[in-house]
């Protein structure tokens, strides 16, 4: 089937199999390899992107379902050359180690701060609780999001 998805503000029209998962459309179809794949069972959140205005696990959504919709990935987080405060926060607070969970974590953090500019530590932990990080023990991810909240949202 033919579909058009607006990814990070750019329209992409492609011929795909209806069964194609959104994560594979982004990674293999469009070469946007910033979003990752980490599990078979929708548990890890390495694949989180925004579909229209909400974060979703793109391994559990068909590319076809995004037809006619907008997708935002880590590659669309910075505003041109200007890093998002969340990206700054992750750097300042050592919020990443291997970096594999990082894009998904940052996209969720961005969504959280858009809806709750001054979250508590518990609210940050709740927001990222559908996403696994094997490296940071979460401590510095939480600090990174709180840093972003204090420094420009």
């Amino acid at each position: 089937m033919k579909l058009t998805v607006t990814v990070n503000g750019t329209d992409h029209t492609r011929e795909v199999e209806p069964r194609l998962l959104l994560i594979h459309f982004l990674r293999d179809g469009l070469g946007l390899t910033g979003s990752h794949w980490g599990c078979d069972t929708s548990n890890c959140g390495a694949c989180v992107v925004w579909l229209d205005e909400t974060p979703v696990k793109s391994c559990t959504v068909l590319a076809a379902m995004a037809d006619g919709h907008r997708v935002r990935t880590v590659e669309g987080l910075a505003d041109g050359g200007r890093l998002d405060p969340v990206q700054e926060g992750f750097t300042q607070c050592h919020g990443l180690q291997c970096g594999f969970c990082t894009p998904g974590m940052m996209l969720t953090a961005r969504w959280l701060l858009d809806h709750n500019p001054s979250p508590s530590e518990a609210e940050v932990r709740e927001a990222i609780s559908g996403q696994i990080c094997r490296c940071t023990g979460y401590e510095n991810i939480v600090r990174s999001v709180l840093w972003a909240s204090r420094n420009g949202g």
Binding site: E126, G130, Q131
Partner: peptide
């Protein structure tokens, strides 16, 4: 139920 991201969808 599930987690916040799953609950979005």
């Amino acid at each position: 139920i599930a987690d916040p991201i799953v609950r979005n969808w």
